[in-house]
C-alpha cells in the first residue's frame, strides 16, 4: 500500500491536466456529445434540470461522505470495511433517537450522532479490526460483514424494522429561490456540511503533523514506529474519524429522506462503486466519482426524457433507469480504465 499520498489540490490539478491531455479522440467525442445532450436537456426544461442537478449533488455528497471513510480505511489499513454502511445507518438512528424520540434540537443531533458513531467505530476497531490489519484483505471483508450483521440486528431490536423519520429545524425548512427553480434549503445545507467535512479531512491529512505521521505510517510502518510514532493510536483515530463522517452523512440523509434498516446496505454498496470508480487509494478520486455518480444517477432520467420528447422515440424514456446508472458507470469505467479514474496501477490487485 505504498505511494498513495492522499493529498488533493496540487495533485488534483496535475491529475486533471494529465487526464485531459491523455484523452483519446473517442473519449473527447463522448465528452462533447454528453455536454451537448446536457445543454439540450437544460434548454428543454431548465427548472427540472437544475432541480435534478442539485438533487444529484446532494446524493453525491452523501456518497462522498461514506466513500471517504471507506477509502481512508482501505488506503491506510488495507481493510475493506463492509461495516461502514452500518455506521452510516447508526448515525441516522442516533439522530432519530436525539430528535424524534428525545425531542432535542436537530443541531444537537448533528453533533451527538457523529460522536456516538465514532465511539462505536472505536469499539469495533479495538475489538475486531486491530487483529486483522496484517491478514488477507478477504478476512477483513468477512469480519466487518459479520459486524454489519450484528449492528443491523441490534438496530432492529432497539428501533424496530419500520421506516422512521424526524423533522428539521424551521430555519432549514422551506425553499431557496434560485431563479429557474426553488430548491429545498436543507439540500443546500447538506452540500455545505458535506463540503466542510471533506475539506476538513483534507486539511487534517495534508497539513497537520498528525496527517504527516499517518501518511508516513502508510509508506513504511516499521520505520515510522522507530521514529517514535504511536501508529496503532493514529490508525484508531483515523478509523473513528471515518466512522464519524459516515455517521454525519447518515444524519443528513435521514433528515431529508427518512431512515430504514436497509439504508446501510444500499449505501455501502454504492460507496464501494464510488471507490472503485474513483480508484482505490485516491481520496480525490473518491470525491470526484461520488459527485459524478450522484449527478449521473439524477441527470440520466432528465436527459432521456428530454431526448424522447424531442425525437418522439418512446424507447429513450426508460423508466427506473436511475438505480442502474451507478453500476453502468462502474462497468464502463472498469472496461476502459480498470484501475479507476484516479487510481494507481497495481493497488489491491
Amino acid at each position: 500500500m505504498n505511494g498513495n499520498d492522499p493529498s488533493f489540490a496540487r495533485e488534483a490539478t496535475d491529475a486533471v491536466r494529465g487526464r485531459l491531455g491523455s484523452l483519446t479522440p473517442a473519449a473527447w467525442a463522448l465528452l462533447v456529445i454528453s455536454l451537448a445532450v446536457l445543454a439540450f436537456a437544460f434548454a428543454v426544461r431548465p427548472g427540472l434540470f437544475v432541480d435534478n442537478a442539485i438533487g444529484g449533488l446532494v446524493y453525491g455528497m452523501i456518497l462522498v461522505m461514506i466513500a471517504l471513510g471507506l477509502s481512508l480505511i482501505l488506503g491506510l489499513m488495507g481493510v475493506v470495511n463492509f461495516a461502514h454502511g452500518a455506521l452510516f445507518m447508526l448515525g441516522a438512528y442516533f439522530a432519530y433517537q436525539v430528535v424524534g424520540a428525545m425531542g432535542l434540537s436537530f443541531w444537537a443531533a448533528l453533533v451527538v450522532a457523529p460522536v456516538a458513531v465514532g465511539a462505536v467505530g472505536l469499539a469495533m476497531e479495538v475489538t475486531v479490526l486491530r487483529r486483522i490489519y496484517d491478514q488477507d484483505p478477504i478476512i477483513g471483508l468477512l469480519a466487518t460483514f459479520g459486524l454489519t450483521l450484528m449492528v443491523q440486528e441490534a438496530v432492529r431490536a432497539v428501533w424496530g424494522a419500520a421506516p422512521l423519520g424526524f423533522d428539521v429545524p424551521r430555519a432549514l425548512q422551506g425553499g431557496t429561490d434560485l431563479g429557474v427553480t426553488t430548491v429545498g434549503t436543507f439540500r443546500i445545507f447538506t452540500v455545505l456540511v458535506a463540503t466542510v467535512a471533506v475539506v476538513a479531512v483534507y486539511l487534517l491529512i495534508s497539513r497537520t503533523d498528525f496527517g504527516l505521521t499517518v501518511r508516513a505510517g502508510v509508506q513504511d510502518d516499521e520505520m515510522t514506529e522507530f521514529l517514535g510514532v504511536d501508529l496503532p493510536l493514529r490508525f484508531t483515530a483515523m478509523f473513528c474519524l471515518g466512522a464519524a463522517i459516515a455517521g454525519l452523512g447518515g444524519v443528513l440523509r435521514a433528515a431529508e429522506s427518512g431512515l430504514g434498516t436497509g439504508m446501510g446496505q444500499t449505501f455501502v454498496i454504492l460507496a464501494f462503486v464510488v471507490v472503485v470508480v474513483g480508484g482505490v487509494g485516491s481520496l480525490f478520486g473518491s470525491v470526484v466519482s461520488g459527485i459524478l455518480i450522484g449527478e449521473a444517477t439524477f441527470m440520466t432520467p432528465v436527459v432521456l426524457t428530454a431526448l424522447s420528447a424531442a425525437t418522439g422515440v418512446a424507447a429513450f424514456d426508460v423508466s427506473g433507469i436511475q438505480g442502474l446508472v451507478p453500476y453502468l458507470v462502474m462497468i464502463t469505467v472498469l472496461l476502459v480504465r480498470p484501475r479507476g479514474l484516479f487510481g494507481e496501477e497495481g493497488l489491491m490487485e
Binding site: V80, P137, I138, L141, I269, F272, V273, V276, P326, Y327, M330, L334, M348, E349
Partner: peptide, 9 residues
C-alpha cells in the same frame, strides 16, 4: 477484493 465488490455490485 475487486472480485468481491464487483460481484456484489
Amino acid at each position: 477484493i475487486y472480485f468481491a465488490m464487483l460481484t456484489l455490485a
